[in-house]
Design a protein around this nucleic acid. Structure first.
Lengths: 144, 144
DNA sequence: GTAAAGTCTCACGCCGGTGTGAGAGTCAAG
DNA sequence: CTTGACTCTCACACCGGCGTGAGACTTTAC
């Protein structure tokens, strides 16, 4: 499929799909005329990438993550900077740990705040069903 | 205390402390000569703010959060944009939930990746106790 | 052939969070 | 007084994620 269809199906702006490619997170083929050609599996991949990006992960980190999550043979990287890589990822892991902690804390705070906000709204005046949903979800969906 | 001490104690760059003030997240008093004067309680506050920011919360949302967490009388905001605020925070909450999930996933993947990396390095050579720490934590600490 | 929709690249710009430096004022210590 | 550490404001700039527009080409539909 071409970029437009992928965009429609994933709800990811075309701009972003190109951006992901620029970052090496999506590697569509090209038609002779230069149009990007995506495969069915790219739908899931794109959604995943988008999800990770929105989670605040730097794209640099997403790439190796994708490599790791895919059914890839434990092939030969360049051994040599292994130690360096290990250090890098260890640092990254620590950072992620901290970030998760912060995030959880923030989430709890927001939750708390929301609760109060909602409680404070209807002290007595019954105001049946003020729409208070939160259209979340449906971002990462498998290609099926 | 002045900004330098606060910076040392919170490990937050001075620049950022000023930035937080600019955003209304920290409101130090001033000496006659213009120096910022922080109180003991600002240590915790600053740490919290920093934590929230690093978690990806936009500063605009942090402000009302802080208001909420503080021992404040349930005073009169402008009622009117309440609904708007609620919607906003609901969306933010959803975002955070997703973010936490994604982040955890990523963290696990990184962990996994690290494990493989490390395993691949020492196929046979016993090398007792390869240091594998990750100095996380100790970001948000209460003032006392 | 022509029009319309889709795509390409390139490039500018915004925003939020940060780093950094310049130039001036403040304060404590000698 | 001078000196050095600290602080002030202002301002430029970077980076990452994103929007948007220009100008050219491709594909599709009539």
């Amino acid at each position: 499929m071409r970029i437009g269809e992928l965009s429609r199906r994933t709800r990811i702006p075309i701009r972003m799909l190109r951006y992901y490619e620029e970052r090496g997170l999506l590697t569509p083929q090209r038609t002779p005329s230069g149009y990007r050609l995506y495969q069915e599996s790219d739908v899931g991949q794109a959604a995943l990438v988008s999800s990770l990006v929105r989670a605040g992960l730097p794209t640099r980190l997403i790439m190796p993550l994708l490599d790791d999550l895919r059914p890839k043979p434990p092939a030969a990287d360049e051994p040599g900077d292994r130690d360096e890589l290990i250090a890098l990822f260890a640092a990254e892991l620590a950072r992620l740990d901290r970030q998760v902690a912060c995030l959880s804390l923030s989430r709890d705070a927001v939750r708390q705040h929301l609760r109060r906000l909602r409680a404070a709204r209807e002290p007595g005046c019954a105001r049946s069903r003020t729409g208070s949903d939160s259209g979340a979800g449906r971002a990462v969906s498998g290609p099926g």
